[in-house]
């Protein structure tokens, strides 16, 4: 193998690894705050990417219907759950968050979807559609199970994954899509070419990592999320709503997922079920970090990206087999480390 190929593979691995790191962060965050092992993380990648791709050819993505359905369902469920404690203020808040918001997005998209629309506006519109789905999903599927065991939550997450992939097929169809790059800048460093997309991936990953750091370190909300992760009972006792923290965690999860999706669109053809495999690679990284450590997750994500790049060069057809089999020894190592727990329900 010559040096240039080596560099190519490293660059490729680093680019993919950056995406896996973002997804790994989301998984760690969701698990720490809600104890949910969020298998459907990758579905936000597919939803985000495909929604962006449709917007960039001027089509109205049918995910806006899904957003409406999610919003209304979560609103109805929430109103029913809090029926004894309902005040006018909380009623208005629910209607605004569950019905008015998705409706507004719905009409905004219908107004703004044009083939010549700027990529950056499409980027924002995609976020407006996909990000609210996270908290809605939490309220519909997971909030009623908030006190269930990690295992029950995991099974529920698998159920949600199954449904979301199915919905993806309904809304996007079986064909794969690609989207244009966000920028056309490119240059070469030595012999190694850097495209605008590669740069965008690095820049966005770094910016988001920094942004998340500031959010968790400097804001009261961010600290409240960390507190929920550190000690749920303690968090409740100071008045932090665990359900509220869960919704924020899910919003960040759908946000990071959608951005990852938009970033990979120009380099990969994304199908309705592609997200799952991408999400799982973020997962491998998060498991390395025991679903708890952001720095270990980041390093592991880069490692997964590079291993994958080399695997696809040397044994391309066994790439997935190798990457996923990697999880098993890591799980074993983590199990032996973790204190033995009684597997009660």
């Amino acid at each position: 193998m010559d040096g240039l190929i080596l560099l190519f593979l490293l660059q490729d691995g680093l680019t993919n690894g950056a995406i896996y790191a973002l997804l790994g962060f989301a998984l760690v965050l969701v698990f720490a705050v809600t104890r949910i092992i969020f298998i459907p993380q990758g579905e936000f990648v597919a939803y985000g990417g495909l929604t962006f791709a449709l917007l960039s050819i001027g089509k109205i993505p049918s995910t806006i219907w899904l957003l409406l359905v999610f919003g209304i369902a979560s609103c109805v469920i929430q109103l029913w759950r809090t029926r004894y404690l309902l005040t006018l203020r909380s009623f208005i808040r629910e209607i605004a968050g569950g019905i008015a918001l998705p409706l507004a997005v719905f009409f905004l998209i219908r107004m703004l979807a044009r083939p010549d629309q700027s990529a950056w506006l499409n980027f924002l519109l995609t976020l407006a559609i996909v990000v609210p789905m996270g908290p809605y999903l939490y309220r519909i599927a997971f909030q009623p199970l908030a006190n269930a065991s990690v295992l029950t939550l995991l099974i529920a997450a698998v159920g949600v994954h199954l449904s979301m992939v199915g919905l993806g097929l309904v809304f996007f169809g079986p064909e794969g899509l690609r989207a244009p790059t966000l920028t056309d800048i490119s240059f070469t460093l030595g012999k190694l070419p850097f495209t605008g997309q590669t740069i965008a991936v690095y820049a966005v990953t770094l910016a988001l990592t920094g942004g998340l750091y500031l959010f968790f370190d400097r804001t009261l909300r961010g600290k409240a999320l960390r507190a929920t992760a550190a000690n749920r009972l303690g968090a409740r006792l100071v008045g932090i709503s665990v359900a509220g923290s869960g919704q924020i965690a899910f919003a960040l999860s759908s946000f990071l997922g959608a951005i990852s999706g938009i970033l990979i669109m120009p380099v990969t053809t994304v199908y309705y079920d592609t997200g799952f495999l991408i999400g799982l690679k973020g997962f491998v990284a998060a498991i390395f970090g025991a679903l708890a450590s952001y720095p270990i997750t980041a390093v592991a994500a880069i490692a997964v990206g590079i291993i994958e790049a080399f695997a696809s060069f040397h044994a391309s057809s066994y790439k997935e087999v190798i990457v996923f089999m990697l999880i098993v020894p890591v799980l074993l190592w983590r199990s032996l480390y973790a204190p033995q727990i009684e597997e009660d329900e």
Partner: peptide
């Protein structure tokens, strides 16, 4: 030997791997 929720995750991992 996997504890708690690691066990089902393990089954997902080898399930997908062997499928491929």
């Amino acid at each position: 030997r996997l504890s708690g929720h690691f066990l089902p995750l393990g089954t997902i991992a080898w399930g997908i791997s062997l499928y491929f």
